Each structure stands twice: as structure tokens, then as C-alpha cells.
Computed example of a mutant assay.
Amino acid sequence: MSTGTGTEPSVPGDPTTVTLTAGDLQVALVSTGAAVTRLLVGGGSGDGPEEGVNVVLGHQHLSSYREVGGYLGTVVGRCANRIDGGRLPLGGTTHQLVRNDRGNTLHGGSDGLDRREWRLEGATGTEATWSLTSPDGDQGFPGTLQVRVRYAVAPGVVSIEYTATTDAPTPVNLTNHAFFALDGEGAGDTGGHLLGVDADAYLPTREDQIPTGEVRDVEGTPFDLREAAEVSTVLAEEDDEQVRIAGGIDHHYVVPGEGLRRHATLVGRSGRRLEVWSDQRGIQVYTGAHFDGTLRGTSGSVYQRGAGIALETQGFPDAVNHESFPSVLLRPGQTYRSRTEWHLT
């Protein structure tokens, strides 16, 4: 394992690691999936990150980011979320993508960007930039895609900037798939967290969690989180069809407005608070129903149902198959740009 701020490309079996620090905030990164493996926030002592608490889920061993997967803290794509049947209609041709989730494509396929070794282009004590080339035909997607992700830290803030270019039309929808556990990684279920989402609409799904095409008002539903609610209260709404389908929340929320704005808030029992800001059209909120004790985390504990909550800023899922959804198509000559910030107090 190599560490530090070198710019040598990483190779399988030898992931590159980087640590960024600002005030009482520390972020650990690894080249596999350009993943956030730890996010330490200062404990009550105020003695800095060495006394901090890790508030994201991660694998116990770095090799598991490639060998096991699970999207813990990784960059996912080319096209985050689900694509119906892996069908990509484009310019009169339907491209068949790799299907890895109940006959659909999830997060770019079984060997998506989350399983790749990214190249560390450069790093300082407070920022790091990773790059990756996804070749034409990768997981069935057309065009060669050049992707860069820049992480930067300042006191209380982690920022993530994505850029991408292509030599042929292709869908691009990038996000980070961190699972947050604000009472500490391995502390148990997050049902006691308060969750708020700055959205007045969400996308209901079919049984296989592909959007139906409807944009539904949250008013009068368990998905109305414009005023923060305890996650356990939403999970208890088992009579709601959409809660039943997802085993909680695994839905895209439509955040009104343009530019960098708040998308969601999360507060643990500990009082630690996270605000997620982004310029994306929405956010996928996932309450971690799939954790079943088979993954062993950073602290050595096993992750059970609800061990973490994912807040994935992104474009609409399955937009390539819904003309009414905002397009996620990137064309030659264009540059995909997006920014997300995690504000921690």
C-alpha cells in the first residue's frame, strides 16, 4: 500500500491512499473507487481529528473495496442509480448495458467506476484529485469517458467536484455513495437519526425500484421530510406501498431551485449534524435496508440493517428511458460539472 501525496498511478493490489485534514476534520481516501474510507469529525474534547469519530461506513480491509464492493464511500457511475432493463436508447440505437440488479443496471454495471483503480493526479494536505478513463463500450456504454473527481476539505466542510468529457454521446450521472452514521461507524442502527430533505416531490418506483415516471408530491406521504423526522418513524410506515418496496427509503427526491443549495440534513442522537449541499437536481436517499451482517466495517463490527444512511446527490434515475425527466446525456464538446458539499457541525 502506498501513502502520501505522490502522483504515481495506482495498480491492482497496490491501492493509493491519501489523508486530507482541516481543523478537526479528517478525510481518508483510497484509489479504489476514489472512495472516502473514513470521515473523522472532532470529538467533544476539541483535540482535533486524532480524537475524532468516524461518521461514514467503510470496509475493514482496503482490498474489499475491489473484491467485495458495496459502494461504501465510492464514486459511482458512469450513470448512478438504476436503468430499466439495462436499455440505453441513443440516436436510433439501443445499447445493452451490463445488468446487475434484478435484470436492470445499477450504478454503472457490475464493474462500474466504484470497482476501478483511479489515478491520483495530485494532492496536498487539504485536497486531492483522482482521474479515470472509461473506454468505449465499458459495461455497454458508448464513448470514451474521461472523469476527474476533486476532494477538498476546509474546517467543517468536505467538497466534491466532478468533471467529465466524452468523445461520443453517453449518459453521465456521478455521485458519491457514502453511508453516514453520525453517532459513529459501527455504533448500530441509524433509526434514531433525524432526517430532513428539502424537496416537495419524489419519484415512486415499481417493485424492482425502477421509477414509474411519475413525479409525486410528498404532501401527505411518509416521504414528506421538509420538516425533519426520526428515520424510524418513516420505517414504521409499512402500510405505504413505497416504503414496503424499498424496506424504508430508497427514493430520488426532486430538490427545487438551481445552483448550489441545501438538499438534506441529518442529525444523530449525538447531536452531530450534517448538511448536504449540491447543484444537482435531486438526491437519492437510502436508509440501508440491505445490510445483513455479512459486511465487516472499519472498526471490525458487522453492519446490520440500517447501519448507515446514503445521501446521493445526482440526476434523475433511469432518465435515459423517460423523456419527461431532465436529460443526463453528455455530448462531445461539452463538460459535465457538478459539486457537492458536506457541512459537518
Rank of each mutant, 00 (worst) to 15 (best):
P317L: 03
L344I: 01
D279S: 04
E227G: 06
T221E: 01
V98D: 11
H193G: 15
T16V: 13
T19N: 12
P169C: 06
G73T: 07
T19G: 11
T190C: 15
T221N: 03
D167T: 05
I160K: 13
T340C: 04
V285F: 07
V11K: 10
N100E: 02
F179I: 10
I210F: 00
D279E: 04
I160M: 15
A80I: 11
T126R: 12
V285I: 14
E8I: 00
S270L: 12
T94R: 03
R119I: 08
I309P: 06
P169I: 05
F180A: 14
T166G: 14
F180N: 13
V285G: 06
Y71L: 14
V30C: 15
V27Q: 00
V158N: 09
L235Y: 06
D250S: 08
P15L: 15
L311F: 15
V56D: 00
L97G: 03
D138N: 09
E127Q: 10
E237R: 15
I249N: 09
S2H: 02
P211W: 01
R102S: 10
T133C: 02
G48K: 06
T124K: 01
S278F: 04
G23E: 11
R38M: 03
A229M: 13
W342K: 05
V18G: 02
G122V: 09
A264I: 11
S10Q: 09
L120T: 13
G247H: 05
W130L: 14
I160F: 13
V53H: 00
R116F: 00
D111C: 02
L25Y: 13
R38H: 08
E219I: 10
E275F: 05
A123S: 14
T7A: 14
V158H: 08
G108Y: 03
R102F: 05
V18Q: 01
Q139H: 10
P211K: 04
T7N: 12
V243S: 10
T105C: 07
H107I: 00
